[in-house]
Structure formats: structure tokens, C-alpha cells
Amino acid sequence: MSMTIALQQRRSEVDLENPKVAEVWRQLETVCDPELDEPVTDMGFIEGLEVDENGTVGICFRLPTYWCSANFAFLMATDMRHQVEKLDWVSRARVTLKDHMFEEQVNVGVNDGRSFREIFADLAPDQGLDEIREKFRQKAFQRRQEVMLLGLRRMSYSDDDIVKMTLQHYDRVRFSDQEEARQQRRYRDIIGELELANSPGDLAFCSYGGGALTAQGLDGYLATLRAVRINMEFSGALCRGLLNTRYKELKPDDDEPTLVDFILDRVPPRNAGKDAVPV
């Protein structure tokens, strides 16, 4: 028996008791749009999930426009497959990109385990995905870090305190702003991945290359981070707007919880809990 769901459907229309769907969803939450540094699940890219008794998972996704970059689409599809296949009961994850100028090439490439370079050899001979992945990992690091630095300044930490802050101290900071609290975890994740800071005594903040920050240099450093964020925000705002227009008919009512909220046990949806964050 296979179960197909459309994520914007209401609770009454689907079997929500299947814990495997929720597990797949949680894995997909770790996949980000590289250009936006936001999870594909939050962006509304995932259109459907299918789980069968043999451990085969089908993931269907689509992007804000027919023209979105093939390299980003390929990256996300690869990551989706990879992350979902980490679940030990999953034998195979098949990813399907829909309504895209290169959907065929992306789907064949990702599901057959072929490289971007191989699939797009004629069109992008000079392009591999590793460089792009690296470039956008840096941008993600910078964006998350800017939220932290500005947040700490707002909480009246001095620039000197900030550049000397240890990981131990960082972990104890309680941000009242929801976005800051979210990015606090995400920044922690990325400095761990990049091995920039691991033990409690390590400095929480440094440049992407691992260079030390100084109190006098912080304004200039923040100006660089700001430019990165301005680009990412542009793309993010457009993507959300374009996706809403393209698939308007699927947009749920604002206040009504969607299936995703039920799967993840977050009814009412998390925005409603804003005031509950400790100050």
C-alpha cells in the first residue's frame, strides 16, 4: 500500500498516523535552498511525499519559477535524496522536480546518481557543483552570523564582549526575538560543520576563514555581512512572492493549520507561540 499526500491538504483528508512521513519530513527540513539558506520545507517547495511498504520514498518538489537555476535545483534534489536515504528503513528515495525547464535532466541525474557536470556537459562545461556549494555555504555562514552580531549589539553587548565571547557564553544567551533564537541554533550548527568552534572555550565569532574579529573592525566587517544579506533577502522575498503567485490555488488559509503543522505536532502553528519564548 502506498500513501500519497499533498502537503497543503487538511487533516481530514489524509492518514496522519504514519510516523514515517514525519521522519521523511524532518530529514527534508535539513535541506536548504543554497541561495536563500532556508529549508526547502519552509519555502513551500515540497509538493508531495510517498512512502511504500518496501521502504521506497517518493519526493516531489517544485520551485518558484520555471527558470530557477538548474544548478541550485540539482543541489537541492541531490541533498533531498541523500538526507532521506540516511533513514535506515529507507531503501530508495526518488526525487521528482516538476514544472522546470530542466526537470528531465535534473531528475535523471539525481535518481541515477550522475553528476551535474556529466548531465549538463554541453551547457555548463566549466561548472561543478562543489564550488557553488562552497560559495553558498560561506554566504549562509555570513548571514546567520550577521543576525547574531546585530542581535547581541541590540542586547547591549559591547563590541569587545562580542569578539571575545566564548561558545559556552554564546550558548547561554537567550534571544527574545524569534528569528534570532532560530538563527542562534543554525549559526551553532554551521560553525560546528565548518569546525570553526567546537569546545566551550572556543571563540564563538570569527571570519569564514577562521580569522579573529576585532572590536575596532566590527563595523566594517558588518558592512560586508550586510551586503551578503541584502542579496539573499532579495532572492528570498522574490521566491516567496513568485511561488505564491505561481501556485496560488494551493495556498492555505492563513490561520488554518496545514498538514505539515499536524505532522510535526505544532498546532497551533509556531508563529502563534511567539510570545512564549523566554526573555
Partner: peptide, 17 residues
Amino acid sequence: LQGKQFIECFYAYHNAL
């Protein structure tokens, strides 16, 4: 299809902003 998708993308910009 590309012709259709191109103007639809423009229309999405129009709607979005």
C-alpha cells in the same frame, strides 16, 4: 512552453510586488 512560462514569470513578478 518557454514562451508561456516566460510571460507567466513576468506576471508572477507583477503579482508579487
